[in-house]
């Protein structure tokens, strides 16, 4: 195991930010941390890298206890923080060099690793420029370059795609897969489920400081496998309509956002769909489009927590 977290607890005053978390991450995995803001993802990561001391529990990384061998453990970790943490007044290359030196790289090895990190993130041609001239996406990529220059065995990416353009986002997602192919184990936190679903093998869903579900994307979906999801775009929606739909046998939840009604349901008979459409027609809601889908991670989260991931 690359990471073994056992019974981790972190309290801030009277609030438990992380409550009895147990996670195991195998070598070569891309492990996804899913959860809304305040779920406890960043606190767990801070405990992993030593930025916060847990109240109880233990963390082992690559077999070493973080409590006893912090410096040794951290040599093998590359953290891509959620907020961009680079020197605006150092050139791109100087930034990567600085962090490379902190991790003990010197001479030719340093030069080669710096070039490799900048080429990997597509910034080698801009290496002599100051980050203040970079776009948000380029800064995010430099943020990654600084974390991978020492070729760590474990890379932790805390929401690395927040606020970036689609081009940089795709570049970052491809980079994650590529880094994994090169041998790094990756912990990836996000509240973008489609990203997590795209790149991660195992996923832990956190809410209120606890891991409420853990497994592969398919395993998580099986938790609600008997359920399906239907998105109906309507011209007008009333509360009476929602109330009546909720009374139909088989409907688990019915929510509306921007004229799109999302129904999670368990189909118990062949007349179910007809009954739903009949009810909507009765209220003159005027159906514009209907889309029936298999459950997504969003649905899993919604079912497990009763709230949307971005809440």
């Amino acid at each position: 195991m690359v990471v073994e977290i056992e019974n981790l607890v972190k309290e801030f005053k009277e609030r438990k930010a992380v409550n009895n978390v147990n996670i195991s991450i195998k070598e070569g995995e891309i492990f996804g941390f899913l959860g809304p803001n305040g779920a406890g993802k960043t606190t767990t990561i801070n405990a992993l890298v030593g930025l916060t001391s847990p109240n109880s529990g233990s963390i082992r990384i690559l077999g070493d206890s973080t409590a006893k061998h912090r410096k040794k453990v951290n040599k093998n970790i590359g953290l891509v923080p959620q907020d961009i943490a680079i020197f605006e007044d150092l050139k791109a290359k100087e930034n990567v060099e600085f962090f490379g030196r902190l991790y003990g790289l010197r001479g030719t090895e340093l030069k080669e690793r710096v070039q490799a990190a900048l080429e990997f993130t597509g910034l080698w041609d801009r290496r002599k420029e100051y980050p203040k001239k970079f776009s948000g996406g380029m800064k995010r990529r430099l943020n990654i370059a600084c974390a991978i220059v020492h070729q760590p065995k474990l890379i932790i990416m805390d929401e690395p795609t927040v606020g970036v353009d689609p081009q940089s986002r795709n570049h970052i997602l491809r980079s994650i897969v590529e880094l994994n192919k090169r041998g790094s184990t990756i912990i990836y936190t996000s509240h973008y489920m489609e990203e997590v679903e795209e790149v991660c093998g195992n996923i832990a869903i956190m809410d209120n400081g606890e891991v409420i579900a853990q497994g592969t994307s398919d395993e998580l979906k099986k938790l609600i496998s008997s359920e399906k999801r239907m998105d109906i775009t309507l011209k007008k929606v009333t509360q009476y309509l929602i109330d009546e739909l909720n009374q139909i046998d088989g409907i688990k939840s019915c929510t509306v956002e921007n004229q799109i009604m999302t129904i999670l349901y368990e189909q118990k008979n062949d007349l179910f769909l007809s009954l739903v459409i009949e009810t909507i027609t009765k209220y003159n809601a005027e159906i514009i489009a209907i889309d029936v889908e298999n459950p997504s991670l969003e649905d899993v989260f919604l079912t497990l927590t009763g709230k949307k991931l971005r809440d």
Binding site: V49, G50, L51, K71, K72, N74, K75, I77, L79, P81, D83, I84, A85, I86, F87, F99, L102, Y103, G104, C146
Partner: peptide, 14 residues
Amino acid sequence: HGKLGERIKISPVS
């Protein structure tokens, strides 16, 4: 202090 400080803090520098 701040994010840059945290990043440096987790490096092996004493």
